[in-house]
């Protein structure tokens, strides 16, 4: 079945890069904070499987440590989006049609209306370029995604019998949201979270590519590409490997998201197939 193939391939790719990130805490082939100008721009060899960069740093080691940056930024950004978006979506659904609902949904539309990359650039221009500000900038745009998703799913749940039963037994909207609605949207959240995670990786790469993400000496994939800009015409390996790392990680997460959706949400399977 294709579903499991997606899940397998996606899971494998994700596992490889997560593992690389985890291993990098304990061991990397070369120290990425040490520069060796004499060994700069070496093509791939046994000593340096992916070659070295313009400061003589080992590219394999940099990709491993860079995975850490990308994953950390994306996870926290998605976390922010969920932590704020899910309660907002639940609240909007619980008070459907109220002023609160209207304000939340208009607020969502408003955030959607802002060109996200542009706002991210403005945020980092105001507060300075750093990984933390990149997280905030990406996180903000995750809020409406989760709020909308949860509101939509919760609205249909509120009409279901088990919720009605809970209401009859005297539970308030907060308790119902927490005890009955939330558990039933977790699958959706896992699937959407995976997709947002991959978008977060792409956004982080774009931000650090324009110099607004994690700052040196912390390696990041986007900045490796930016640094390679002027050199990849004679040293293609500088651009190919970090680019592939982004591509494969995002691909892995997307495949895994699709696979998870098929697995966790049978109702969606028909639509997808």
């Amino acid at each position: 079945m294709r579903a499991s193939r997606n899940l397998w391939l996606g899971g494998l790719l994700t596992a490889v890069f997560s593992l690389a990130a985890v291993i990098s805490f304990a061991w990397v082939p070369y120290d990425v904070t040490k520069l060796d100008i004499g060994a700069k721009l070496l093509s791939p060899s046994w000593a340096h499987p992916l070659g070295t960069d313009h400061f003589g740093r080992d590219i394999l080691s940099m990709i491993m440590v860079g995975a850490r940056t990308s994953i950390a930024v994306a996870i926290v950004a998605v976390g922010i989006g969920m932590a704020l978006g899910v309660p907002l979506g639940l609240a909007a659904a619980a008070r459907k049609g109220s002023l609160l609902d209207e304000v939340i949904m208009r607020g969502n539309d408003l955030i959607f209306a802002f060109p996200s990359l542009l706002i991210a650039i403005m945020i980092t221009a105001v507060f300075g370029a750093s990984a933390v500000n990149a997280i905030i900038a990406i996180g903000i745009f995750n809020i409406p995604v989760f709020a909308r998703l949860v509101r939509g799913a919760a609205l249909s749940l509120w009409t279901r019998d088990f919720v009605l039963a809970a209401r009859v037994s005297g539970k308030g909207p907060v308790r119902i949201s927490a005890e009955h609605i939330l558990p039933n949207v977790t699958n959706l959240l896992i699937v959407q979270g995976t997709i947002q995670f991959s978008l977060g990786i792409l956004a982080e790469a774009a931000l650090s590519y324009v110099g607004l993400g994690a700052q040196p000496p912390l390696p990041s994939w986007g900045r490796m590409l930016a640094d390679a800009q002027t050199m990849f015409s004679f040293k293609p390996h500088l651009a190919i490997f970090p680019g592939l790392a982004i591509l494969l990680t995002v691909l892995g997460l997307n495949l895994m998201g699709d696979g998870l959706r098929d697995l966790l949400d049978p109702r969606l399977r028909r639509a997808q197939r």
């Binding site: 904070t33 040490k34 520069l35 100008i37 313009h54 400061f55 040196p216 000496p217």
Partner: peptide
């Protein structure tokens, strides 16, 4: 670039 090198030094 100079900054990254000096930071390392």
């Amino acid at each position: 670039r100079g900054g990254e090198i000096i930071a390392a030094q």
